[in-house]
Design a protein around this nucleic acid. Structure first.
Lengths: 213, 213, 213, 213
DNA sequence: AATGAATGAGAGTTCATTCAT
DNA sequence: GATGAATGAACTCTCATTCAT
C-alpha cells in the first residue's frame, strides 16, 4: 500500500512488531505454545509468515516477546499497587479484588495462565522469565504487605508467603476453571464474585484471634 | 539381569498395558499431550513404538486410558472420603488436608494438572472426560458437604460452591507452583504445610459470625 | 486340539496350506495384493499370523501359491475344452459362453482379474506367471480354434489372435464392470446374458461374406 | 540448464499444480493408488514432499485432481464425439476406432485403467468419481447412439447397453493386455489394428438380418 | 508344529524455518 | 522491507516379518 502523498520519512506501518506480538499473544493464549501455528499468528497480524522472521528469530523468541511486551506491563500495575497501598489490610485485599477484575478485562488471563502452566516444562527458559520477571515480584509484594500487616497486629501469625498464595489461589483457580471446563459444559464461575467472597473470607480468617473469655 | 546376549524380544508376563499406561502418565505429565512423543513413552515402557498400538488405538486413546486407569482411581478416594465424612466441618477440612498429602505421594499431581490445563483447549474431548468423570464430582462433593455444614450452622452464609473452590485453590496452586517454578529456581512450597495453614485459615474464615455485643 | 484317541500317524489338520491358500485368494481378490493384510488372511484361515510363515516364505510367495494352486486349475479346464472341441465354430463359441458361466460360480473371477491387473506392474514376476502359465495358453487355444475354423471356411479372414481377443473382451469387461462399478451404484451387467448376446454377435460378425452378386 | 550452484529453492512461474498432477498421474498409473509413494510423485515433479501439501490436502485429493484435470478432459472428447455423430452407424463406429487411437497417444490409458480397476475396491469414493463423472457418460452415449441406430433399422435387435459394452470390451482388453503382459514377454497387440478389425466385426455382427431366401 | 506379542522400517502428514523474488 | 512457495525433519500410525514360548 504505497501511499504516494505521505512524506517519505514516515513509516508506512507504525508498529509492526507490536501488532505481531498482540496477534501472537492471542494465538498462544488460545492454543498454547506448541500447538500455536506461525501461520495463524501471521494471518491474524495481517502479515506474511516470512515477515515474522524479520522481527523475531524463532518461535520461542516471539513467545518471549509476548511475555515481556504484552503481559508483563499489565501485571506490573497490580503488584505496584500492592506495594504502594498505604491503608489497613482489609482495604488492601478489597482493592486487590477490584484491581483483578480490571486486569481480567484487559488480558486473556485464562489463556495466559494456561500457556504458562502448560508449556513450562518444555521451555524452562520461558518459565524462568515468568518467574523472575513477574510472578516472584507479585508474590513478593503481597508477602511483604502481609508481613507488614502482621507486624502491625492486623493479621494473625503464620507464614506470610503462604498467606499470599492463599489469597491468590482461588481467584486464579476460578479463572482456570472457566477457561478449561466452561467450554465443555462445566458451570462457570463469576470470577469477580469469587474474588469478593474469597477476600472477605480471608479477611475474617486472617484476623487476629480475639481474646476469648 | 544376568542375560547372555540381550534377547531381541522380551516377553514379560507382567501387565504390559499397565506398564505402558504408567509410562504414558509420566511422559504426558512431563510434556503435555501434544509434546509427548510416542517414542518416549515406548522407550520408557521398555517396548517398541509399534507395541503401543497392540493395546491402544491412538495416542488420544492412550491418554484416555491414563486418565481412567491411573488417575481417576486415586482421586476418587478423595471425594468419596468427603462425601462419607460424618463429623463437624473443621474435622472434615483437616482430614481433607491430610488426605491430599497422601495423594501427592501417589500421583504426579503437578504434572497431571499441567497436562489438563495445558491441553484442554486443543482437545475438548479430553477436557470433557476430566470434568465429567473427575473434577465435577470432587467439587460437587465438597460443595455438598459445605452446604450441609451451613444448614447445621457450622459455616456462615455464602455460595458453597465458591467456598469449595476457595478450599481447593491454594493447595492446587502450591502444587502448580512447585511444578512450574521450582525447576527454574523459584522457592518451592511445602504443599502439606500450605494445606494445613490454609485449612486453618478457612476454618476461621468460614466460622459463623459470633454475636458481637 | 490334541485329539488323544487318534492314531499318531494321522495329521491333525488335513490341509493347512490349502486352507491358507483359499483364504488368501479370497482376501487378495477383495483387496488386491498390497492392501491385503496377512492378519486378515490368517484370521480367515483360522490360524495365527505366524503359522503362515511355516508354509510360505513371504507374502509374495503366498500370492504365487494362490495363482498356481487355486486359480490355474480352474481355468485350465476352459482352454482344454476349447482345444478339445470338435464341432463347428458356432457351437464352440456357444459352449464357451456356457462354460464361462460355470467358472464364474467357481471362482471370484472379478476379484482375481482385479488383482492381476492391479498388481501386475508392481510384481512383474507374478505377471509372468499369469501370462506363461495361464493366459497365453487360453488365448492360444482359442486362436488356434479360430484359425482352424478359418481354414475350414467357417470364419472370414482376419487376425485370428485378435478375433480371440474380441471374443473374450466384452465378457471380461462385464465381469470387471460388475466388480468395479456395481458397488458404487453402477447398473450391473448380467454376465451370462452378455456372454450369450456377444457370442451370437460374434458368430454373425465372423461369418464369411456371402457371395454378393 | 547451465546453472552455477544448484539453487536450493527453484521457483518456476510455470504451473506447479499442473506439473504435480502430471507427475501424480504417471506414478499412479504405474503403481496404483496404494503403492504410489508421495515421495516418488514429489521427486518426479521436482518438488519436495511437503510441497504437495501446498496444493492438495491429501493423497486422495491429489488422485481426484488427476482424474478430473488430467484424465476427464481427454475422455470427454470421445463421448462427446459419439453423441454428436450424425452419420450412419458404421461410420460412427469407424470414427470411434480412429478417435481411440488418438486418445491412446495422449494418455497412459493402460496405466489409468489399471489404477481404476486395481483400487476400486479399496477406495469406493474414487470408483464413484470414475463411474459418475466419466464411464457412465461414455457408455451411456454409446448406448444411446446404438439405440437410435436400432430405431433407424441399422442395427439388429438386442440390448443396446450390452452392444455398447461389446464394442468397447476388446479394445480395452487389448490395452490392458499390452500394459500387463507385454512387459513380461507377452506378444503385444496393435491396439489401433484391434480397434479397426473389431469395429468391422461388430458392424457385420450388428447388421440386421437380411431376408434369407 | 504353532502361537501371537513384539519389532522396526516406512508410509502420509504437519509445520517452523528459509530464500529467491 | 516484505513475500509466500518451498523445504525437510519429525510426528503418528501401519504392517510384514520374527522369535521366545
Amino acid at each position: 500500500m504505497p501511499e504516494a502523498s505521505e512524506p517519505k520519512f514516515r513509516r508506512r506501518k507504525a508498529d509492526r512488531p507490536g501488532e505481531i506480538v498482540q496477534a501472537a499473544m492471542a494465538v498462544f493464549a488460545e492454543k498454547g505454545f506448541a500447538a500455536a501455528r506461525l501461520d495463524d499468528i501471521a494471518r491474524r497480524a495481517g502479515v506474511s509468515k516470512g515477515a515474522l522472521y524479520l522481527y523475531f528469530e524463532t518461535k520461542e523468541d516471539l513467545f518471549r516477546a509476548v511475555v515481556h511486551q504484552a503481559i508483563a506491563p499489565n501485571l506490573e500495575g497490580v503488584w505496584r499497587m500492592i506495594a504502594a497501598h498505604p491503608g489497613p489490610f482489609p482495604a488492601l485485599l478489597r482493592a486487590l479484588a477490584t484491581r483483578i477484575g480490571v486486569v481480567l478485562t484487559t488480558l486473556p488471563v485464562g489463556g495466559v495462565v494456561k500457556m504458562v502452566i502448560g508449556e513450562a516444562g518444555n521451555f524452562p527458559e520461558l518459565a524462568r522469565v515468568w518467574h523472575d520477571d513477574l510472578v516472584a515480584h507479585a508474590l513478593g509484594a503481597l508477602t511483604q504487605a502481609i508481613g507488614a500487616a502482621q507486624a502491625r497486629g492486623e493479621v494473625k501469625p503464620g507464614d506470610p508467603r503462604v498467606y499470599a498464595l492463599q489469597v491468590i489461589g482461588p481467584i486464579l483457580l476460578s479463572v482456570i476453571w472457566d477457561e478449561v471446563f466452561a467450554p465443555v459444559g462445566g458451570a462457570p464461575f463469576d470470577v469477580p464474585a469469587v474474588a469478593r467472597q474469597h477476600v472477605e473470607t480471608m479477611i475474617a480468617g486472617l484476623a487476629p484471634q480475639k481474646a476469648r473469655p
